[in-house]
């Protein structure tokens, strides 16, 4: 938990007074009810929808029959887009870390009085619509666009090569869209590092690389964990990039869940959705344990 709530700063002193506990529950009640009704209860509905007898329809209703076969069918039919989603999300997370770390580091340690401006610039893309921005990647990566022409001129791309409608385009879009979610937690944890620790590394005759590897990087691990989670999770469920920048060959599991719901095939769609959620929960728990920071969640 600490890793992700660290953006919230240190816990404040709690002023305790008798009889205030009741007030606390009263303050929590409206928001808590909203989340219970529209976050927890829906998850239960989703679980039960995934066990519906698929012979029903949205109009006639479904029989809740404990139809576990839905999961077997869904996994058999959609194993490939499912695996692809995980792979793309992994690639996206790796690229975001690779691009986000230098940026977060530059903002935290090298930006001087431009710190606030640079932070604002990281958040700024959020204010232009996600979809409109993704569409502009379609233009940038298009067959006669600047990027393709440059790559052809450099002979990195063959004369018939293209970027749009490829895995590269989808991962580029995903990386672009989720990069701020990597940079912000990284920045938050880098910023907290006591500068004297890094100087001490230099004083002890460690080169910049050794100092980075043994001091800065380990101390920024909470940010790395938070950032990778905040990038991986939404990327795994996204279908906008795959749809706008890719072809059916780049289809992700989100595309299928959305299409199945739109076509009224609720039981299969729900089964896929539950599987996605369960996979992510298992991966996250495994990852957090593996990184050796069990107190992070």
């Amino acid at each position: 938990m600490t890793a992700l709530s660290q953006l919230g700063g240190p816990p404040a002193a709690v002023t305790e007074k008798p009889g205030r506990r009741f007030t606390a529950y009263l303050l929590l009640l409206p928001g808590g009810l909203w989340l219970a009704l529209f976050f927890v209860v829906p998850l239960v509905s989703l679980l039960s929808a995934s066990l519906y007898d698929p012979s029903g329809t949205v109009e006639t209703g479904y029989a809740v029959t404990g139809h576990w076969q839905n999961y077997v069918d869904a996994l058999q039919d959609y194993a490939r887009p499912f695996g692809r989603s995980m792979w793309y999300a992994l690639l996206t997370t790796a690229f975001c870390l690779l691009l986000g770390y230098p940026l977060a580091y530059a903002i935290a340690f090298k930006s001087g009085r431009w710190k606030n401006l640079m932070l604002a610039l990281v958040i700024a893309p959020f204010f232009t619509s996600f979809l409109v921005r993704t569409l502009s990647w379609k233009l940038l990566l298009g067959d006669n666009g600047v990027v393709v022409d440059t790559l052809k001129w450099l002979h990195i791309l063959g004369p018939d090569g293209r970027l749009l409608a490829t895995t590269t385009a989808v991962v580029t879009g995903l990386t672009y869209n989720f990069l701020p979610f990597m940079v912000l937690p990284l920045y938050a944890s880098l910023e907290k590092i006591d500068h004297r620790l890094i100087e001490a590394g230099g004083d002890l005759f460690a080169g910049p690389v050794t100092t980075f590897r043994t001091v800065t990087l380990p101390l920024s691990m909470p940010g790395v964990v938070a950032g990778t989670l905040l990038t991986f999770i939404p990327a795994a469920g996204d279908y906008i990039n795959a749809e706008l920048l890719g072809t059916p060959q780049q289809r992700m599991i989100g595309n299928d869940i959305q299409n199945l719901f739109a076509a009224g095939a609720h039981p299969t769609a729900a089964a896929l959705s539950v599987t996605l959620m369960a996979t992510i929960v298992v991966l996250v728990l495994f990852y957090v344990r593996r990184v050796g920071t069990e107190d992070l969640l």
Binding site: S5, G32, F39, M277
Partner: peptide, 30 residues
């Protein structure tokens, strides 16, 4: 305020942020 279940509340608040949108959307639809 200090009350029973503060840690649980934090987790409860955090979970929707850590769920993919497609899961949140499809469960509401369900």
């Amino acid at each position: 305020h200090r009350y029973r279940g503060r840690a649980a509340t934090s987790l409860f608040i955090f979970l929707p942020m850590a769920s993919p949108e497609i899961v949140l959307g499809s469960s509401l639809l369900a």
